[in-house]
């Protein structure tokens, strides 16, 4: 019997937002092949969840047995420690405070980051997930170099080397596949990454670098201090 309908697969979510099946004849629609391989939640998923949770509790318990949560002297408003540090997840921001005025580092940049994160799924450029250099190579190259260039100059003017160096490295890696003719597996893979991937990767690297510097490399007066000398 010939197929009553055929399901087409198209990776381009923009071109084919929905799959439509036309059913000819009187026969009921039948799906020949399950495209999803399903298993029972009990036991397959629930057992895994239980194991993961228990393993995590064991790790936490071991940590808690061997490492104590810090408790310093009682709070004393008269005595400011040097440096006064926020908890580690804010030290990236505190590091920025070292370079930019508080309104930029403490308000504008974090607000921009949260807004950028929120709009990611609505910002539907490149739904096809096309690599940057697959088509319109010249245009993209100019765009990337212009944005990275302006950003780098700004960072340089404010002496934000902690962001400048990661930015330059990411930009360099980003454009490399556009220039190399014979590409190995890694370059091919890098070349096929979409723009959103690069922005997120850049963002994550900058966040990690800034947080690490603020946590490990900053001492009194926010001066550079090697972590093997002392960690504040």
């Amino acid at each position: 019997m010939s197929a009553d309908f055929r399901a087409e697969k198209n990776p381009d979510a923009g071109a084919v937002p929905k799959r439509v099946a036309f059913i000819k004849g009187r026969t009921a629609a039948r799906v020949r092949k399950e495209d999803e391989d399903l298993v029972m939640t009990v036991p397959h998923l629930v057992v895994r969840e239980a194991i993961a949770f228990m393993a995590m509790v064991i790790v936490l318990a071991l940590l808690s047995l061997f490492f104590n949560a810090p408790l310093e002297w009682i709070a004393n408003p008269e005595h400011t420690p040097n440096p006064a540090k926020a908890p580690w997840y804010f030290l990236g921001l505190q590091e920025l405070l070292h370079y930019f005025p508080p309104i930029v580092a403490g308000v504008i940049l974090p607000a921009l980051a949260v807004i950028a994160l929120i709009v990611i799924p609505y910002f539907r450029v490149n739904v096809k997930r096309e690599g940057l250099w697959e088509s319109s190579r010249r245009r993209n190259l100019i765009g990337v170099c212009a944005v990275a260039g302006i950003l780098s100059v700004l960072l340089f003017l404010y002496n934000v080397y902690a962001m400048l160096i990661p930015t330059l490295i990411v930009a360099a890696v980003m454009v490399t596949p556009a220039f190399v003719r014979r590409q190995g597996r890694i370059l091919l893979w890098l070349g096929s990454r979409p723009l959103s991937w690069w922005i997120m990767t850049w963002f994550v690297i900058v966040v990690v670098v800034l947080t690490a510097i603020g946590t490990l490399f900053r001492g009194p007066e926010w001066s550079w201090t090697w972590p093997w000398k002392e960690i504040y």
Partner: peptide, 28 residues
Amino acid sequence: SYTGYLLPWDQLAYWGISVGTNMARSVP
């Protein structure tokens, strides 16, 4: 995590929170 950080009321807590709320002060 941040609100919990103040509760022990030690130097770490007190100044960690002071630094953070000072940042919030710079909202225009």
